[in-house]
Design a protein around this nucleic acid. Structure first.
Lengths: 341, 341
DNA sequence: GTGAAAGCGCTAACAT
DNA sequence: ATGTTAGCGCTTTCAC
């Protein structure tokens, strides 16, 4: 049984260093000039006692908790592979500014926002997983604390939002097919996805629009059910134009992998008889067989931008609220592109 | 521009209700008897002002932050599908006790523990993603705050730990193959996994041991590289005993899906010519094609148990530290089991 | 059954 | 360049 010694306070440090408590505070914050000698003595005392400032007292006094809340859905519906990279990057960005991150699950709903805000549990909020019509947004817009959305709702309600430039990415993928002599582009549909998300419809719309501009025949094929079984059931429609310069488009790494498997299952060699292109992190695209031509998503950049905006608001140095679109990375042509002619 | 009114304090509530500040506090905590009338007036005032107690002040005075820290790796290496269900359940369990969860990423290392503990940012810690030789454990064991591990290290150092009973689950899967007349059991190996985890070796060892007990021929086949490509490259060895009552075993949903695909790729019908069984959440197993015979992992139960132990320690009502193994769910036979004879 | 007052550990205005 | 002091908003004695 370890003895339960109380944590050292700034008072203890002051006594040990032979200075006043406020001097300790000023050494820590650097908000006034301290003679080198006292500074040294204080730092030595801090070291010796392994002093760390009490977060509660700081928050109480300074009106800053050094905590930001991150609200995200973690339940069955959402695919963690899509959300976790954003979460990871938000935490990293917050830590760089010496803030911690409280994780709030999305299904606690708007009430969690007023609770955290009212109790001053955090200085600001990042909301992920934004649906077109998201019930958290009205509540969020009324909070005193800054809020940044990762995602695009129908109505931002004056909040900052950051999202990946899905339409641009879609156009790049269609361009790849057009540039390599394809005649047909078929998009694997996602009507099965629960909730209504901007990125789904925006991707589909942008694919269709770009295909029209580039003179490509275009179709969306919706699997009748989720999972691999659905994709397989849709095979006849997905591969209807096999043999006529067909290119398949996917919006996620999972979908890309499935399209590759599907093609091979049906005797087609991706990269020769048919193309498969998708929106994937580069690492995921390279791990596929064959490595897939892809436009990289930018989870890290989106999250960094969101946290950056958040701190601009916390520090009061923020411009007007806006929707910030993060540009896709380069398109990387890999083995899954078939070059015709 | 909304006016930036300050949050109401218990003092404001007291004035409005015509009572003293301490009475407000006692109404909230219920730590002394209050006459029904005053209680009503106070509650009305709280309602009217939408008063919420300031977390910082509470933590400062009460020595309780109502926050627990959850440390987990979120980077590239770990598959989010394995970790997120645990995270979700930890958050849910904490919320049931009106606590919030700070998310700390594993790669901050042991220093993050001393920081959070020293600053009194949280009351307790849950550590996930425990490697056999985990560098956070020595530091964790020396903290004043309670710590519970989710996972099994080589040395618990006197800490509580909770884990899924992987050996038992492995035995159940092997039993299923033995009970249905299989002659060969082949386990998809995972030597590619970074770091050394108990659940990997424990699963392998238990499979081997049970196979010996049940008189099954047993082999582990390690893919030469990660991803689907590796599995396919290992196909000749994985399927060497095709046609002789072969059963394939996987430790994860991803591996299970890949084995199913592999079998079909090579002209075998899972559930008729060959069996595939795996450790999967029921939902994942049912979504496969064909639905896979599985023993369910118990992320929710493991997390709940961990949080339960944590609060027992926080409240000082804890028994001796121990490793708690959570029993697997029932084995569910689905379409991927072939019954021989 | 209720109130007054002390003080948790810190920061920052007011001293000198 | 440093010390003294007044709170931040809450819980909890102590007093009636």
């Amino acid at each position: 049984m370890t003895e339960r010694r109380a944590a050292p306070t700034s008072h203890d440090v002051a006594r040990l260093a032979g200075v006043s408590q406020s001097t300790v505070s000023y050494v820590m914050t650097g908000k006034r000039s301290i003679s080198p000698e006292t500074r040294e003595r204080v730092l030595a005392a801090i070291e010796q006692l392994t002093y760390q400032p009490n977060a509660g007292a700081r928050a109480l006094r300074g009106q800053r908790t050094q905590v930001i809340a991150l609200m995200v859905r973690l339940g069955e519906h959402a695919d963690p592979r899509d959300t976790v990279p954003y979460i990871d990057a938000v935490v990293a960005a917050a830590r760089e500014r010496d803030h911690d991150v409280v994780l709030v699950t999305g299904d606690e709903g708007p009430a969690a926002l007023t609770r955290m805000a009212g109790r001053r549990n955090c200085d600001a909020f990042v909301l992920m997983d934004i649906r077109a019509d998201d019930d958290r947004i009205a509540t969020a817009a009324a909070l005193e604390q800054p809020v940044v959305l990762i995602g695009t709702p129908a109505d931002r309600a004056g909040l900052d939002a950051v999202d990946y430039d899905v339409p641009r990415a879609a156009a790049m993928l269609v361009d790849e097919l057009a540039d390599t002599g394809h005649r047909h582009a078929v998009l694997l549909g996602e009507s099965a996805l629960p909730g209504e998300y901007w990125f789904v419809s925006a991707f589909h719309d942008a694919c269709r629009a770009r295909a029209a501009e580039r003179g490509l025949d275009f179709a969306v094929v919706d699997p009748p059910r989720p999972g691999w079984a659905g994709v397989e059931a849709a095979a006849p429609r997905l591969l209807a134009d096999r043999g006529d310069r067909l290119g398949l488009i996917a919006r996620t790494p999972q979908a890309t992998e499935r399209l590759l498997l599907l093609a091979r299952f049906h005797g087609l060699r991706p990269g020769e008889d048919v193309s498969v292109v998708g929106l994937c992190p580069d690492a995921a695209a390279e791990a596929l067989d064959p490595p897939a031509t892809s436009v990289s998503t930018q989870a890290r950049e989106v999250s960094r931008k969101a946290v950056e905006l958040l701190f601009a608001r916390i520090d009061g140095t923020a411009a007007d609220s806006a929707l910030h679109l993060v540009a896709p990375g380069e398109l990387r042509r890999r083995g899954s592109t078939a070059v015709f002619e």
